[in-house]
Design a protein around this nucleic acid. Structure first.
Lengths: 143, 143
DNA sequence: GCTGTAATTAGAATAATTCCAAATATAATT
DNA sequence: AATTATATTTGGAATTATTCTAATTACAGC
């Protein structure tokens, strides 16, 4: 697995900016998230990471994911009572979770819609983030 | 603590509808959520429940909360990596979490806004729920 | 190449939640 | 009102996801 040059650049500058080092493990995990964008859990990332890097530890996977999230290269995605999942899509989007197939799909959100969501906040409140999660049945799981 | 008649009625019919029994514990926990609507965790509910019902167990608190959520009398509220919180507000609303004060505030949502959110889903997708969580600084926590 | 610091590692610890089997309470039936 | 069948509660053990810890290893600057 190779990390494409533009992403390698992005990773290196994000790490440098936050005073952290570029390591094989961080690069590997970032590459793997970019390559198969299926919102894996830490455990799933661990399994995939070991294929090419058999000595990597689960703690390192958690550390790397934490670092990538901190530097805003990936996002954490949470569905109630389930393990955290990870997503390298940096555009503004929500997540749709199909409880039947288990699939998670990105749903693009316009700036206008996000503006409207900000406008409904009570006076004096400012949000740094909005997290929007749908759940229901996806295209493939309909009758 | 007393459960007001209209809520007692609501509880009883919801339980009956789902073929479950009305118990002291369920009634007590429902009453306590309605009385102080501060989005407590299961642990916090447990502490409050024990004041009037010292023999109640944590497992029962979880069971009751689960039953109330199942019968749609309360909602579960999740913020990333934090314990689940519980909310008896049945109107359509989102949650604002102030990371500074820890306060959680209900944010009312109009049907129109929810409609718009439904419309941005890809064709063939239908959502049963949308969960919207803001986080940032609340009124009291601004500079 | 050496040195200081950051990152990785394996395993232990923690926190939230669920599971389990026994005891108790409820609702239905006699 | 007593009996019976089933649902619920209980306390503790088990599980799951995640974080912590201390020792080892790797990286960046000199």
């Amino acid at each position: 697995m190779r990390l494409e040059p533009q992403y390698k650049e992005l990773l290196n500058s994000a790490l440098e900016l936050s005073g952290q080092r570029a390591t094989k493990q961080r690069e590997h995990i970032y590459a793997l998230l970019l390559q198969k964008r299926n919102h894996p859990t830490a455990e799933e990332v661990y399994v995939r990471a070991k294929e090419d890097m058999p000595t990597i530890s689960l703690a390192t996977v958690y550390n790397c994911l934490e670092t990538l999230a901190e530097t805003k290269l990936i996002r954490q995605v949470n569905f109630e009572r389930e393990p955290t999942r990870y997503c390298p899509n940096l555009t503004k989007h929500a997540h749709f979770y199909c409880r039947e197939s288990g699939e998670i799909v990105d749903v693009d959100l316009s700036d206008e819609l996000l503006d409207e969501l900000m406008k409904v906040l009570p006076a004096g409140f400012t949000a740094k983030h909005i997290e929007i999660s749908y759940d229901g049945a996806c295209n493939d799981c309909h009758d």
